[in-house]
């Protein structure tokens, strides 16, 4: 199955890198949030370093949400999803492929950009490292939970409006543990945040394809 699976991931990545590039848009959005916050709260670097973990985590989650509504909707609207559903891949495999493609095109680039934005917030080295690692672990969970939301709203013309309302409360644990890891690093504590975040991410990535496949099945019948 690896041939069809890989080809689907590569095709989604290719689409993300073109078409106004959802990947580039997410990065720009993330950087803009990081720029606006200091303009709002003031340039006190001590304060900014304290809030950097939370602000950048929230910014990353919002940035990843931007492109989520198109995850299934584009393929649903133009009939590609019918063809993909008839491929040798099961719908669960399709959902996993799309999840991976979304993470490679948004979660991973956002993670790679985060140390640079941490610099703007005066986040010390250990904090930056914790932010980077927590985003690396946590953004797959964002893609996974987001993929469920995307599959639920795939037939909606304006699914992008309702998607954040559905997804964001479910992502509270990711933000809490992710930002918690940064706080712990700043205070030189160990609070197990990264472990909890890993567990949350693992559960989300494991369960998401099943929920998303169920939603896709339901919508193909429509």
């Amino acid at each position: 199955m690896s041939g069809p699976f890989v080809s689907l991931v590569m095709r989604d990545l290719r689409l993300a890198s073109r078409s106004g590039g959802s990947a580039a848009l997410a990065l720009a959005f993330f950087a803009l949030v990081a720029t606006l916050v200091p303009l709002g709260v003031g340039a006190n670097l001590n304060l900014l370093a304290r809030i950097a973990g939370g602000v950048l985590w929230v910014g990353a989650v919002l940035a990843a949400l931007l492109s989520l509504d198109r995850l299934y909707q584009g393929d649903f609207d133009d009939g590609s999803l019918d063809l993909i559903a008839l491929s040798p891949l099961s719908l669960e495999q399709v959902a996993l492929a799309k999840l991976l493609a979304h993470w490679f095109s948004t979660g991973l680039p956002l993670t790679l950009l985060s140390p640079l934005l941490a610099l703007l917030f005066g986040l010390p080295g250990p904090g930056t490292w914790a932010l980077f690692v927590s985003l690396l672990i946590g953004t797959p969970a964002v893609s996974a939970v987001g993929a469920i939301g995307a599959s639920l709203t795939l037939s909606l013309k304006r699914g992008g409006l309702i998607l954040p309302l559905i997804i964001l409360p479910l992502l509270a644990p990711a933000v809490i543990f992710g930002a918690g890891a940064v706080t712990a690093a700043l205070d030189h504590l160990s609070n197990g945040a990264l472990g909890l975040l890993s567990a949350f991410a693992a559960a989300a990535v494991l369960l998401s394809p099943f929920a998303a496949a169920a939603c896709v099945r339901l919508n193909l019948a429509g």
Binding site: L15, G79, S80, D82, L83
Partner: peptide, 16 residues
């Protein structure tokens, strides 16, 4: 898995 499908949507991505 035995079906070739030609729906009334074109299933064509303008960017590709």
């Amino acid at each position: 898995r035995h079906i070739g499908w030609l729906g009334h949507h074109d299933a064509v991505k303008p960017q590709m």
